[in-house]
Simulated assay, not measured.
Amino acid sequence: MTRQIYKSGIDWWMWLVLIFVAGVTIAIAIDSTLWVALPTCGVMIFCILLMVGCWYEIDGNQLVVYQFFRPHRFPIDKISEVKKTTGILATAGMSVRRVSIKFADRSVMKSSMPLEISPKDRDKFISHLKEINPNINIG
């Protein structure tokens, strides 16, 4: 079985946040002591880790969502519905163009809420899931 990696989509606002935090960090570092500048450097590092530490992988029958380089595995055969959505829910993604994934078994997510992720190529991602599990309803 082959692995396919899908990068996370990153919207313009995430780049804007990173540039803003970098500007604030530089302004604080120029005009203050190291102990004042370190927390803002931490926020900038957090934003960078958020951007590079999020991607998605389809590995056999597993959907693996990496957030902060930490994998979360979900069984593809338990997916009941996949649909394209737009929204600003706080989930594993930095784009408002998302994919909402509902599972047939509530124990997978330990709730009734769908998994919302933001792969860069949503159409290819959804068709790949559909190849593995043809029972998925596309909404």
Rank of each mutant, 00 (worst) to 15 (best):
C54T: 15
I58L: 09
V17A: 09
S8A: 10
Y6L: 09
V24S: 05
F125P: 02
V108D: 02
E116C: 13
I28H: 04
W35Y: 13
V96F: 13
E57G: 07
V17R: 01
D105S: 13
L115D: 04
I79A: 00
K84H: 13
D77C: 09
N133D: 05
I26H: 03
V82S: 02
A37W: 05
T86M: 14
D11M: 01
R106P: 14
G42M: 01
L63W: 12
P39K: 08
K84I: 09
W35G: 14
D105M: 08
V96Q: 12
S107F: 03
A104P: 07
L49E: 14
I126E: 07
Y6K: 01
F20I: 14
D105E: 11
R73G: 04
L129V: 05
Q67E: 10
I26D: 00
I28L: 11
A104K: 13
I30M: 14
I48Y: 04
N61P: 05
V82P: 00
S127I: 05
K130P: 03
S107E: 07
G53M: 09
Q62W: 13
L16G: 15
F68I: 04
D123G: 11
W13V: 00
F68T: 01
R70E: 05
V64M: 00
D31H: 13
S100A: 15
H128N: 08
N137F: 11
F46D: 01
H72V: 11
L16I: 07
M94T: 05
